[in-house]
Design a protein around this nucleic acid. Structure first.
Length: 745
DNA sequence: TTAGGGTTAG
């Protein structure tokens, strides 16, 4: 038998093919060393694709080499790792290896750590502990920690850390650096830093890991401080360090520091690779210096899709959509990320119509397909416009395309259905979601809040905690808003008082605004003022705006003027404040004060944001501004509006002019202007173009005025139509002459 | 007697 093992080693590859007499079963190994230089194994390194690897696999099986654990491990590594890996196939090969050694186990863990199923790495690690006769070694842990990092599994990460400490590998630099990275990536900056300072001989990777952790954990200042410390300790930074620091400057929007970093790179001859060049571009664009970025972009010897997308986003952020589009069109290839960058910049900059136009274009293009990120952007654009038909279509698209749902998509769907007036469907998505994180729960609570379903929102908030999900700052904003829309004062007080001490969430300015709103609406203006006085943080304009809103509701002029002046100190151009105070004066018949305010607005060149209402009919969104005559059916709409006005008057409806910002002086003009409010035009268009059975869904950019609210109530009764009107703050569901907000808004 | 850690756009 020994004589058979030896000649095999020296045979050239063709000898296998021509040697039908070879008996693999006899070729079990006596001495592994013989196989290291075996020609079949040397060929593994020359393979450029999986097909070739599979051919070698066949030869290895045929030659009996597979039963040598070294050879099997070499084959397995080639199959499971880049550049020509096929993990499914490799896994089957692994399962055939009789006694995989620690190298083979490590390779399998490593392969899964970089796959889309990193959790499998962690399961394999557990199997290794039971099945492998060798102990995990210094190579095992970095791979396992990488898997825990990618899976964001801090629990497993900490357990593995514990094992490392108990092993003899407690001071292995590779392992410690991986752990710093793990804690940083999981947002545990304290743990990362505590470990980092205890590393005795830090190398550049240790510093880079900690710098990156600070940048990605939202502490760019700390990253820059650490860099200074690194210099004092004479550790030479490399391009990875500089990428992290540029990213820190970009996050801070600190152009001066960014420039310093840029010149540091040049002075210290740090290798300017593609990634570093891209990071420099990113820093300049984020600091608003697109032209400088463009100069560097033109000089770059090599560009990739990141370079192009960075420039595109830079222009889009400045509102230069034409230039952004030019970059998009000039890109060597438009991948899904480029589409997403363009679509989301429109969507996030108040251009939801344009975003949806691009989304349509994307669907028609051949070179890429929308992914989860695209759909989240598109759904958000639908929410903004109230485009429920398209929103529903996207929901079906997600199901039909088998797109894997995630928390973001679930949250976006709930948000879209809630904001487009279909709360039932939002609830259906919520209840059918397999997994829910705090964002999913919070979105549903926000949905219920918008519809004035305060009790249901609080129930959901309690259920969420039963399932073990902890509320965050957003959850509290939403649940407090629910209380405010429903007038649940005691409940809000209790929740607010528990925030910090029971849930560990420090109340922020938003939460105080909500509480002022709750108390103020309920007429407890003194309590609201007391709360503001005792705030541990400076009251923000939104806090004063809430108080001002309450003053409007309860007509308290002194308090309103006080809130107004505080607000203007911080935000002199807050139109909302002027409008509210003007409404309060108008309500009390103080027309001189109204004129004074108007003058002040004119002097400060403040213009009220024009009211705008959207309505979707058969998948097309129609937009109406105040007194809009641009719609093709304009004439029909106005004559219908006249008819409605006549019928309304015969029912005793009188326009409520006190809601009007005093823009027109003549009494009949005032009445006219009220009739020309965008939501009335949209409702009228809805009456004309939708079937009787279809609800009229309107989205308005501003708060609905009292007159339009009464108008919608009566129309819902006179014409037997359901009207769903979403304004800036909440939903109004008009049916048979009643609104779901019970006139409490 | 095989190998490993840190980086950019959305």
């Amino acid at each position: 038998m020994a004589s058979l093992a030896s000649p095999l080693v020296t045979l050239p590859l063709h000898a296998y093919r021509e040697s039908p007499t070879a008996k693999p079963a006899f070729l079990t190994v006596k001495n592994d060393r013989h196989f290291a230089g075996h020609p079949l194994l040397s060929l593994l390194d020359k393979c450029t694709n999986t097909k070739q690897l599979k051919q070698i696999h066949a030869q290895i099986l045929r030659g009996g080499l597979f039963f040598d654990s070294y050879s099997a491990s070499r084959l397995f590594a080639a199959l499971s790792l880049p550049p020509s890996s096929d993990l499914m196939y490799a896994r089957k090969v692994f399962d055939e290896i009789p006694r995989p050694n620690i190298y083979t186990w490590n390779t399998l863990i490593r392969a899964y750590a970089s796959s889309d199923d990193p959790a499998e790495s962690l399961l394999i690690f557990l199997r290794l502990l039971h099945e492998c006769p060798e102990l995990p070694n210094k190579f095992t842990y970095p791979f396992v920690i990488k898997a825990a990092t990618v899976a964001s599994d801090i629990r497993v990460g900490r357990a593995v850390h514990g094992m490392v400490v108990k092993s003899i590998l407690g001071s292995d630099l590779f392992i410690l650096n991986a752990l710093v990275h793990l804690y940083g990536a999981c947002g545990q900056l304290d743990l990362a830093y505590r470990l980092f300072v205890r590393i005795m001989r830090k190398d550049v990777v240790s510093w880079n890991s900690m710098i990156t952790a600070f940048v990605q954990g939202g502490c760019p200042e700390a990253a820059v401080d650490l860099f200074q410390q690194m210099e004092m300790e004479n550790v030479k930074p490399n391009q990875v360090t500089m990428v992290g620091l540029l990213s820190a400057c970009a996050k801070k929007g600190d152009l001066e520091q960014g420039r310093l970093m840029h010149s540091y790179i040049e002075k210290n001859s740090i290798n300017l690779d593609l990634t570093l060049n891209n990071a420099i571009l990113d820093m300049y664009t984020k600091c608003g210096r697109v032209n400088e970025a463009k100069r560097l972009f033109d000089e770059m010897p090599e560009k990739d899709i990141v370079s192009w997308t960075t420039m595109l986003v830079g222009y889009a952020k400045l509102g230069d959509y034409d230039e952004a589009r030019l970059f998009f069109d000039a890109m060597p290839c438009q991948d899904v990320a480029a589409w997403n960058a363009l679509i989301s910049s429109y969507e996030q900059n108040g251009k939801p119509k344009e975003a949806l136009g691009l989304f349509h274009e994307f669907l028609l293009s051949k070179n890429a397909k929308p992914d989860e990120v695209t759909l989240v952007s598109a759904l958000s654009a639908c929410s903004q416009l109230g485009a429920i038909d398209l929103g529903r279509w996207i929901h079906v698209y997600i199901k039909n395309q088998g797109i894997k749902s995630n928390y973001f998509l679930t949250t976006s769907l709930i948000d879209m259905y809630s904001k487009c007036g279909d709360l039932e469907k939002a609830l259906e998505v919520f209840h059918s979601a397999e997994r829910k994180d705090v964002c999913v729960w919070s979105a549903m609570i926000a949905g219920l809040a918008m519809y004035g379903r305060g009790r249901a929102a609080i129930d959901l908030f309690l259920n969420m905690q039963v399932t073990g999900i902890k509320p965050n700052a957003f959850t509290f904003t939403n649940v407090l808003a629910a209380c405010s829309h429903t007038g649940l004062v005691d409940e809000a007080r209790l929740l607010f008082s528990q925030m910090e001490f029971v849930h560990g969430v420090l109340p922020g300015a938003n939460h105080y605004s909500c509480m002022v709103d709750v108390l103020g609406r309920a007429g407890l203006l003194e309590d609201a003022v007391e709360l503001i006085k005792n705030m541990p943080i400076n009251p923000t304009p939104s806090v004063w705006l809430s108080l001002l809103g309450a003053c409007r509701l309860h007509t308290n002029i002194d308090l309103a003027e006080m809130a107004f002046s505080h607000l203007l100190e911080q935000d002199p151009k807050n139109i909302g404040a002027y409008v509210l105070l003007s409404n309060i004066y108008a309500k009390s018949g103080m027309w001189e004060k109204v004129s004074e305010l108007r003058k002040l607005m004119r002097v400060s060149e403040l213009k009220k944001e024009p009211g705008c209402s959207c309505i979707e009919v058969n998948g097309v969104v129609h937009e109406f501004l105040v007194a809009d005559t641009s719609h093709p059916l304009s004439t029909k709409i106005y004559s219908k509006l006249d008819e409605i006005a006549r019928r309304l008057r015969s029912k005793g409806y009188v326009p409520n002019k006190s809601q009007l910002l005093q823009l027109v002086q003549e009494e009949d003009m005032k009445e006219q202007a009220l009739y020309l409010h965008s939501e009335k035009l949209a409702i009228t268009f809805g009456l004309l173009s939708l079937e009787q059975s279809q609800p009229i869904r309107i989205v308005k950019n501003l708060r609905v005025c009292g007159d339009c609210h009464s108008f919608a109530k009566i129309v819902s009764q006179l014409y037997s139509r359901e009207i769903l009107l979403r304004d800036r703050y909440r939903f109004h569901h008009f049916k048979e002459g009643v609104c779901s907000c019970m006139d409490y808004w």
